[in-house]
């Protein structure tokens, strides 16, 4: 019994340290090369998954050790109060435009997710888990649970959406006639949450703060609308 406790404590320490260590390595790699596919958002999970597979550890054992890190997503959600409050002037000035963009973007995310998934014959679990992919993880997992998806799958799809959306937004901005900073920032915040916001910050200060604000608001909007969506989906 004591030995088992020690073993699981060792596992917890090992996997927590490995996760944090790989995260620091991934951040250093990105700082050095700045390639879109080297984003820590993709590299960190890839490294951890590699280690878990190489050592033949089950996900249950891994999450038992490093799961406490995910609990911190709760305080992260509360922390968003600071940027929202700091940007209250921007919200007051532009709320109708931002609300229209967020509603249009969220509706598009749900409809295209549903439509494409149905077209390709994906089952219900995957289809529902794909719907909240565009919003920030803490919000997306809540919505996923509400509408009957699998929050862990959603977390994975959110990560993929962030990586691809940040790159895609960059690419599309070069070809679309979008001039206002409000639109240039909003597209990153609505479509690609934190990864998009990071990219928007590289484009410009105004775009970055708009993307960050929109990311939080669209997440909140989705969480508040999720019970309604759940009723429609059933």
């Amino acid at each position: 019994m004591d030995m088992r406790l020690e073993a699981s404590l060792g596992q917890a320490l090992l996997w927590s340290a490995a996760t944090i260590g790989f995260y620091l390595v991934a951040k250093a790699l990105y700082r050095r090369w700045r390639l879109w596919w080297l984003t820590p958002l993709a590299v960190t999970p890839a490294l951890v998954v590699g280690a878990v597979l190489a050592l033949h550890v089950s996900y249950a054992d891994y999450i038992g050790g490093a799961g406490w890190l995910a609990v911190l997503l709760g305080p992260v959600t509360v922390a968003f109060a600071a940027p929202i409050y700091e940007q209250r002037g921007l919200i007051r000035r532009h709320w109708p435009v931002l609300a229209a963009g967020m509603a249009a973007g969220s509706a598009t995310a749900f409809l295209t997710g549903w439509g494409l998934a149905t077209l390709l014959g994906l089952d219900d679990e995957l289809r529902l888990s794909l719907l909240p992919r565009s919003i920030s993880t803490p919000f997306a997992m809540t919505v996923s649970g509400d509408i009957g998806g699998t929050p862990e799958l959603t977390a994975l799809f959110v990560m993929l959406t962030g990586v691809l959306g940040a790159a895609l937004g960059d690419l599309m901005l070069n070809h679309l006639p979008i001039r206002s900073a409000l639109a240039r920032g909003a597209l990153f915040g609505v479509a690609a949450h934190g990864a998009g916001t990071a990219r928007a910050h590289e484009i410009g200060r105004e775009e970055g703060s708009i993307a960050g604000l929109v990311m939080v608001l669209v997440g909140l909007m989705n969480v508040l609308a999720a019970p309604l969506a759940a009723m429609l989906l059933r």
Binding site: Y59, L69, F80, T137
Partner: peptide
């Protein structure tokens, strides 16, 4: 917390090994 948010959701993405 917001800057390091990514770290906190890595453990969830690792669920892919079960899929």
């Amino acid at each position: 917390l917001i800057a390091e948010m990514l770290l906190f959701f890595v453990p969830l993405v690792v669920a892919v090994v079960d899929h």
